[in-house]
Design a binder for these strands. Sequence first.
DNA 1: GCCTAATGAGTAGTAATCAC
DNA 2: GTGATTACTACTCATTAGGC
Lengths: 105, 105
Amino acid sequence: MLPNLQHMSDNGNIMHLDGALPIQYLPKPPKRPRTSFTSEQLQIMQTHFIQDKNPDAQTLQRLADMTGLSRRVIQVWFQNCRARQKRNPLHDSIPPLDRYQTSWI
Amino acid sequence: MLPNLQHMSDNGNIMHLDGALPIQYLPKPPKRPRTSFTSEQLQIMQTHFIQDKNPDAQTLQRLADMTGLSRRVIQVWFQNCRARQKRNPLHDSIPPLDRYQTSWI
DNA sequence: GCCTAATGAGTAGTAATCAC
DNA sequence: GTGATTACTACTCATTAGGC
């Protein structure tokens, strides 16, 4: 985390030009946003994933419109879902046990 | 990554007006637009390509009207398609339209 | 602590452009 | 026109970081 902070402090420290800008205040905490899907959105994506694991651009857009999510988010979900399935070939159909929301197909 | 950053310094950017204007205020990357064809448009172009690899101007225009694309885009596609076929004499027909799509249309 | 959404490096295919 | 090159889009794979 905070790689920017890191290497900023260990260089020559030539940062006294006009400054009085102490290092401690510097970097912005970027905070990566993370979307969490509703069960409805998951339903739509999962259902589609079964019939097409690699949707093309316009299908992606269609799914985006259906779910209200951005095309990029949908795309990333499909990427992760493919990777997930590849890593874990066991459950490619229905999860065996019914623990509450295993969010997996 | 960071392709935008890359070519940002060597394009227009008439930034030498008054010196000491560091590059860090990256103005704007022009971003070359790239059309992506629908399978229908590809179908039309590919079908025609088989019977005529060098369509003349008015044939190009006719294809443009059929597909809704510009004449220039059609022309470039035929140029690239000839080059592609020359480079790769194996599959002389039908470049893949979507990488993992098993069945198209 | 796990699960996983998001990011980044590396790669590929190709539309668009450049040089000729 | 061609051939070479550029730059945009999308993918995989590995990794990082957010939230129950």
